[in-house]
């Protein structure tokens, strides 16, 4: 005596384990033989695989929900649990500031490694105060841009989650970032130069909100226009950041930086932007 409901139930249990690769090899082989011989078993397997495809797609859709910016900022602003003694640079460079983002420390370390490399691994035998002076110089020069560079290195590789708010929400991006930065943020049209607007993120650098507008070229190369409330008269000037090129300039209300891979010539674009923004 067989109960069709129980039988189907047992079959589905087997199929489920089969899909997950959890059947012992012999049982898996036996199941495959059964599916090949019995159309009903094959149909049930197909149906359950179809469910599988649909549920995977449904879960993947959840990944497209923008992550609240507060979460990201909260993490990036967090001090690492056992911070090493604060580098002299951070203190020398900034008036007492409670939450100098630990990222600056990280940037210091990163740049220091580069500098050390440049000096023939010169960290050794150097008296500590001298080391500190080097850090001061390194940090002073790039300031918030070093942190933007760090962000760029991290986020440019996140091809699937390149941005927080997608380009389709351009109007929202402009209002949101203008309100957050405290200076007008406008998304420039760079399609003439071959760049597609992908969307935006909010970053935190030197304790200030920084907007990041992300563009890609036809080859998937990622560049970003970033900026924070500031202002001045600096004309576009390039700065090499190892694997990145950064061109900084200012207008009356904002400090900008255009960042992209080192091999990209961003100067013409930066000059166009400097006159149009």
């Amino acid at each position: 005596m067989t109960n069709p409901v129980t039988e189907q139930d047992a079959l589905q249990t087997r199929i489920s384990a089969y899909i997950d690769g959890a059947l012992p090899p012999q049982e898996a082989e036996a199941f495959e033989a059964e599916a090949a011989a019995n159309p009903e078993v094959a149909a049930e397997l197909d149906a359950m695989l179809a469910v599988e495809a649909e549920l995977t797609a449904a879960f993947d859709d959840l990944l497209d929900t923008p992550v609240p910016e507060a979460l990201e900022q909260g993490i990036m602003a967090e001090q690492t649990p056992a911070p090493s003694p604060a580098p002299a640079a951070a203190n020398a460079n900034q008036p007492p500031q409670r939450n100098w983002p630990a990222l600056a420390t990280a940037a210091c370390a990163l740049l220091a490694v580069g500098v050390a490399g440049g000096y023939g691994l010169g960290l050794s035998n150097r008296a500590a105060p001298e080391v500190h002076r080097e850090y001061v110089e390194v940090v002073k020069a790039p300031g918030w841009k070093a942190q933007v560079a760090d962000y760029h290195r991290i986020y440019a590789a996140q091809t699937r989650h390149l941005v927080e708010v997608p380009a389709t929400e351009k109007d929202h991006i402009e209002t949101w970032l203008t309100a957050t930065i405290g200076a007008p943020v406008r998304v420039p049209d760079l399609s003439g130069a071959g760049y597609t607007f992908e969307g935006a993120r909010l970053l935190v650098a030197a304790g200030k909100p920084v907007f990041q507008l992300v563009f890609t070229d036809a080859n998937g190369g990622v560049i970003a226009l970033c900026g924070l409330k500031g202002g001045g008269n600096d004309a576009p000037a390039p700065q090499e950041f190892g694997d990145l090129t950064m061109i900084g300039w200012q207008n009356a209300e904002t400090d900008f930086v255009l960042v992209g891979p080192a091999e990209t010539d961003l100067i013409p674009l930066a000059e166009t932007l400097a006159t149009s923004l």
Binding site: T80, S84, T105, A106, A107, C108, L110, A128, H132, D150
Partner: peptide
């Protein structure tokens, strides 16, 4: 030890 942490990044 008073320098930036090397492993940070």
């Amino acid at each position: 030890g008073a320098v930036a942490k090397p492993g940070a990044m």
